[in-house]
């Protein structure tokens, strides 16, 4: 990639979007991975996607639709998982398929060309506008700010939610706050990464960092670095090989996850434990 490409506004926007989306998605991913909420996160991502398509169909801002749907999705999924009326996998699976169904329904009802709708599938970091960047920057600042302010409460909820409740921490508020933060992050990154791919950028950097450290603070830092590298390296690959940017970013993050798993010190501990005699 020639250095001169960095002079273009669209590339500067893309680099900045990669930095912000990489950090925010990775931070949210740390909560999702450590609290075993992967399926809930996927479901919220698809809710955001359906909401964005509704916005496109009815002619209002797709980001507003994505935000509304992801927040409502979090508000519905949280209690379903909590109260255990059904097995959480079953209830979340039902909401997930409903959201996917709604997404395709809105797309089917949309008149005329569906180029903009299709771009929400895989996103395009190279077409990020100044308005999107501002939304993404505000989201990043709020998520990182809340993390710093409520770090000890979040850590206690990650460790054990019931115990956090028992010691007098408002754990339910923290838990729902994290679900809503997931929805907002997905909405803010939808344009650059795409509705079907965004979840990989949330999951992969955090899952890779999970393989490498036993410190939560270090995990947040490593995941953020992996998130940024995924975005920037994916962007470079996309530019050089002329491949879709969202897909390139997600594949890069998957490769990072694969390498982290391969060289994970935790994996070595596991292997060592497996050869120890029982008792």
């Amino acid at each position: 990639m020639g250095i001169e490409v960095l002079q273009y506004q669209f590339m500067q926007n893309a680099i900045l979007a990669g930095l912000l989306a990489g950090i925010t998605c990775a931070v949210i991913g740390v909560f999702v991975v450590t609290m075993h909420l992967s399926f809930i996160g996927v479901c919220i991502a698809h809710a955001a996607f359906a909401g964005a398509l509704l916005g496109l169909w009815l002619g209002f801002n797709p980001l507003l639709g994505a935000l509304l749907f992801s927040l409502v999705g979090a508000a519905v999924i949280g209690p379903m998982a909590d109260r255990g009326e059904l097995n959480p996998d079953t209830s979340i699976g039902i909401v997930f398929s409903l959201m996917l169904g709604l997404a395709f329904l809105f797309m089917g009802l949309m008149p005329g060309a569906r180029g903009e709708a299709l771009s929400l599938f895989w996103g395009s970091i190279l077409t990020v506008t100044g308005q999107h960047l501002i939304f993404l920057a505000i989201t990043t600042a709020v998520i990182v700010g809340l993390l710093v302010v409520f770090y000890k409460e979040i850590q206690a909820v990650i460790c054990h939610r019931d115990v956090a409740v028992a010691v007098g921490i408002p754990a339910t508020v923290v838990f729902y706050g994290l679900l809503f933060a997931t929805g907002v992050t997905i909405t803010a990154s939808l344009q650059s990464i795409g509705g079907l791919l965004i979840y990989s950028l949330i999951l992969n950097p955090a899952a890779a960092a999970y393989q490498l450290t036993y410190s939560l603070k270090r995990m947040l830092l490593i995941a953020s670095v992996f998130g940024i590298i995924s975005c920037w390296a994916g962007l470079a690959v996309s530019y050089v090989l002329d491949t879709p940017s969202g897909a390139s970013i997600v594949i890069t993050s998957s490769i990072i996850f694969g390498l982290a798993t391969l060289f994970s010190p935790k994996r070595k501990v596991k292997q060592w434990r497996q050869v120890q005699p029982a008792g």
Partner: peptide, 20 residues
């Protein structure tokens, strides 16, 4: 694999009293 150690877990006991 949870990235939280014993000392941090025990400290969580006083987070409620400590307040936000």
């Amino acid at each position: 694999r949870l990235p939280i150690n014993v000392r941090e877990t025990v400290m969580a006991g006083c987070y409620g009293r400590l307040g936000l």
